[in-house]
Amino acid sequence: MSTQANPADDTLAQWQAADALMRERLKHVGVGRPEQFAGKTGMQIFEALLAGEIPAPPISQALDFILVEAQPGRVQFQGRPQFAHYNPLGTVHGGWIATLLDSALACAVHTLLPVGKTYTTLELKVNYVKALTERVPLVRAVGEIIYSGGRIGTAQGKLVGADGTLFAHATTTCIILDAK
């Protein structure tokens, strides 16, 4: 009898390892100081976040999700669906899902910003395609840039489980602003 590895189990193990590493690296929660952002491109800010040089934002602790990967135009956040995130119907609230997707999509836009620019989300459109419960140990929100210009950035993304199950997909439009 042959024993074959389950690809979903391998992916989950990789995600759990990434989760442990990033939670250790980003154990300091807070708000970055202005000098930690000054003179940095969007991608350089994400490199500093991933290195633990800038604290993890408080929302990541409150909602139990964390930045796990950032490349120019592509960002991934990972979250643990929990009972505390449930709606009255016994599934994870859509707001938790939207928050992970908003983070990944908007941050994909952020990675491409030059020094002296910032952004904010103008619009977020989420399609929920499958209920999510705490029986799913980890999910990933993957955001990828569609367009990045001088005033507008757009991105698309999805929320998936380690087995590839799609729970939601989304698009965003962000406005690009001068940093103050």
Rank of each mutant, 00 (worst) to 15 (best):
S2R: 12
S2I: 12
A5I: 12
N6Y: 05
A8M: 03
D9L: 09
T11Q: 10
L12T: 08
L12H: 03
L12Q: 09
Q16P: 07
A18V: 06
D19A: 11
D19Q: 10
D19E: 12
A20R: 14
M22Y: 07
M22R: 15
R23C: 08
E24L: 12
H28G: 06
V29G: 05
G32I: 05
G32N: 01
E35S: 14
Q36A: 12
Q36D: 10
F37V: 04
F46W: 04
F46M: 11
E47V: 09
L49M: 14
G52H: 01
E53W: 05
I54K: 08
P55Y: 04
A56C: 15
P57T: 12
P57A: 15
I59S: 13
S60A: 10
S60R: 04
Q61W: 06
A62M: 13
A62I: 13
A62D: 13
L63F: 14
D64E: 15
L67H: 05
V68S: 02
Q71S: 14
G73M: 05
R74Y: 10
V75Y: 00
Q76A: 13
Q76W: 11
F77S: 01
Q78K: 03
R80I: 15
P81W: 05
Q82W: 04
F83K: 13
F83N: 10
H85I: 08
Y86P: 07
Y86K: 04
N87M: 02
N87F: 09
T91G: 06
V92D: 05
H93E: 06
A98Q: 03
A108H: 00
V109Q: 00
T111G: 00
L112F: 03
L112N: 11
L112C: 11
L113F: 00
L113C: 02
L113G: 01
K117M: 06
K117G: 00
Y119R: 02
E123G: 02
L124K: 00
K125A: 10
L132N: 00
L132M: 02
E134T: 03
E134P: 10
P137M: 06
R140N: 08
R140P: 07
R140T: 08
V142Y: 04
V142A: 09
I145D: 01
I146W: 03
Y147R: 14
S148V: 14
G150S: 14
R151A: 13
G153E: 01
T154D: 00
T154I: 00
Q156R: 15
Q156G: 12
G157F: 01
L159I: 06
L159P: 08
L159M: 13
V160A: 11
V160E: 12
G161F: 04
A162E: 03
A162T: 03
G164W: 01
F167N: 09
A168Q: 13
A170S: 11
A170Q: 00
T171Q: 15
T171L: 07
T173F: 00
A179K: 14
K180D: 14
K180R: 15
